[in-house]
Design a protein around this nucleic acid. Structure first.
Lengths: 204, 204
DNA sequence: GTCTATAGGTTGATAGAC
DNA sequence: GTCTATCAACCTATAGAC
């Protein structure tokens, strides 16, 4: 990610990041030792310090990639839509990209969700700033949808957005690949969001 | 909870449990030391071992109370409904009780959600059994709703249930008491669930 | 760039006095 | 029932050889 770049040092750094994401995803922040990460990456614990100043810097790199990866996936999915797509369709596409990244590429995104409350305060505060930027990306889409009359006035856009993103963010906790695909899952969510679960005859 | 019972030992045990829930909520499983819990409870670390065999037994008691508390709150909210309430209304009431407990009583419920992936495997496996029992409580309500024609056939009941519970479970991560009340928040979710966000004129 | 060795700190848990 | 004292295990981080 970001750099498939040249130098050996860059490639080793990438290897360490992936090893760390996998380990953090499984055991969380505090329970994952640098020894385990180093073992996953095929080296000794002391060698990590050539690439990262300390554990905090390493975990922050994992957190940031988790959010940036989801955001890139969401924006790419919107880019694949026809230009005529309305804001609700864009939200649906963004959810599709977001969830596919979370459930399939997984390690960075899931580690990020699970570690939010374990990392040191300074790391979390900096990371939340980046996550809020991703939140504003959705906030703009919801505002456009309301302006175009696609969302009824009674809804609180901020609450709606956070509830829906929560449904997506929690899905790694229960998702079973034997059931619906990530795309089918998002379609359940967007169908409910747009028209609700009730048949037309029972709607108020 | 469960025992406001008599003996001094019982009351001390309750005090330790609350101290542990509060500490676990803030710092997670691994980063919360028994010394911190003991300090919260007004005693020394070694004294905890008179009441709990080890850290695992203590954290398991917190986890179980978190789920049982949410379930009790959900069932109580259903009990307050008129007998004529339909299954969708019961689901809404259960959500209301669940979220009020999670956002207001908080420590046990939030600690439980945040520690799921940090606790030792044996503890988590036993706990997930209790959580699945709570899941079946909702599964029955969704099935009744579908049987009564309140949910369209295209919906996957299991996916729908987990998405909606995910929206609730994630809410402690972003909830701001300065905004909507827990009840108003649930009403946003149930309004969307039942009829969707679009105005009637735009629905397909 | 990676290794080995180790310093320095914290933790869960136990033993025994009171 | 609670305290103090302590052990053994583990961790992050550093220093210096290669």
């Amino acid at each position: 990610m970001s750099s498939e770049a040249g130098t050996k040092s860059d490639r080793t750094r990438e290897r360490i990041l992936h090893a760390a994401a996998q380990a953090f995803r499984g055991s969380g922040y505090a329970l994952t030792s640098l020894r385990q990460i180093a073992e996953n990456a095929g080296m000794q614990a002391g060698s990590l310090y050539y690439h990262f100043a300390n554990k905090d810097e390493l975990v922050e790199a994992v957190l940031d990639e988790g959010v940036l990866g989801a955001q890139r996936a969401a924006e790419a999915a919107i880019g694949d839509l026809p230009a005529s797509a309305n804001p609700l369709e864009k939200i649906g596409a963004a959810f599709r990209g977001h969830l596919a990244y979370t459930l399939e590429e997984a390690d960075f995104a899931v580690a990020t969700l699970r570690m939010l409350h374990q990392v040191p305060d300074a790391v979390r505060i900096r990371h939340l700033r980046k996550q809020r930027a991703y939140g504003r990306f959705y906030a703009r889409l919801f505002e456009e949808a309301k302006e175009q009359g696609l969302i009824r006035a009674e809804f609180d856009l901020s609450a709606l957005r956070m509830l829906l993103l929560g449904a997506l963010n929690w899905s790694p906790e229960w998702y079973d690949p034997a059931g619906l695909s990530p795309d089918q899952l998002v379609r359940q969510l967007t169908a409910m969001m747009e028209s609700g679960v009730m048949p037309p005859s029972k709607r108020r």
